[in-house]
Simulated assay, not measured.
Amino acid sequence: MDPFGRVGARGWWHVRCVDCPRETGARSTDPVVLASVVKVPLVLEFARQVVAGQVDPTERVRLRDGDRLGGSGTAGCLDDVEMSLRDLARLALSISDNTAADALFRRVGVDNVRSLVAELGMPETRILGGPRDIVASMVSDVAAADTGAFALAYPELSVAEVRGLSALDPRRGSASTPAELTRLLRLVWRDEAGPPEACAMLRGWMTRQVGWHRLAGGFPDDVGVAAKTGTMPGIRNEIGVVTYPDGRRYAVAVGAVLDALDGRQFAVDVAIGRAAAAAVDTVRATCTH
């Protein structure tokens, strides 16, 4: 049974075994908004550049008032912050720090992240930029003078106007498909998305995500979960790899478009975990690995 219909959402998912051809999904080739899931290919490109000697991971970056977007980590700091690129990468994945992600995009280059997903066989994946670019698109969509004016205008927008923002439209904003996202994860976990050292770097940082209420919430404590969430108004998603005690590994992409735009939406988060667990069970039942 689809767990999303009962919680006011339209869900999608895709699961594939990392080590055999088995897979299953629902709406798995439909375009979906990436939101903060974009930080996974971003950090993979950063890790690849580190291994190639193009970037020093200990390089210091100073983040000032103009860099902050608000939110978690450095994005919400009141004062200037200075840290290494690798710590920014860790914060971008562990707490979804948007300012950290923007700093990484500036350093590694948006075009290089786009080239990476093309190289990995993800033709339906579109990356327009980082979190600041998403905000800029929303400011432009409502013809606001700046982010401050947008913040004042947003509460007055109708539901239709919010849903019409290009950043929330998978046909116009940064987007992918569930099947391409699990392909990316499978390649990373098989050390086929770049040098093994780079893949291992990304895997390690993804295990440090502090949120457990979506994907991880659907699995027992003895199942390892390395994942990254994405959240925007009316959108919840998560991608990750779950590893069972028997060593079997499954790449998962799951999410939903919600009837309501705002609120905690805990029931939807629970449905994400349940949908993921049910899909993994289906694959495990026929897994040939």
Rank of each mutant, 00 (worst) to 15 (best):
M1A: 09
G5W: 03
W13M: 11
C17M: 10
C20I: 12
C20N: 09
R22F: 03
G25S: 08
G25R: 04
G25I: 08
P31S: 01
L34K: 14
L34V: 14
L34A: 14
A35D: 07
K39V: 00
F46N: 01
R48H: 08
A52P: 11
R60L: 15
R68K: 14
G71D: 10
G71I: 10
G73H: 03
L78F: 10
V81C: 05
T99H: 05
D102G: 06
A103I: 00
F105D: 00
G109Y: 12
A118C: 02
M122D: 01
G129C: 13
G129Y: 10
I134F: 13
A136W: 02
A136I: 02
G148E: 15
P155Q: 09
V159K: 10
E161T: 10
R163C: 09
R163N: 07
S166C: 04
A167W: 03
D169M: 01
G173R: 03
A175S: 15
T182G: 06
L184I: 10
L185C: 06
L187W: 08
E192P: 00
E192M: 00
P196I: 11
R214V: 05
A216C: 06
G217C: 00
D221T: 08
V223W: 11
G224H: 13
A227M: 13
T229K: 08
M232N: 12
D246N: 15
R248G: 10
A256T: 02
L261E: 13
D262P: 02
Q265E: 08
V270P: 01
A271W: 03
A277R: 15
A279C: 07
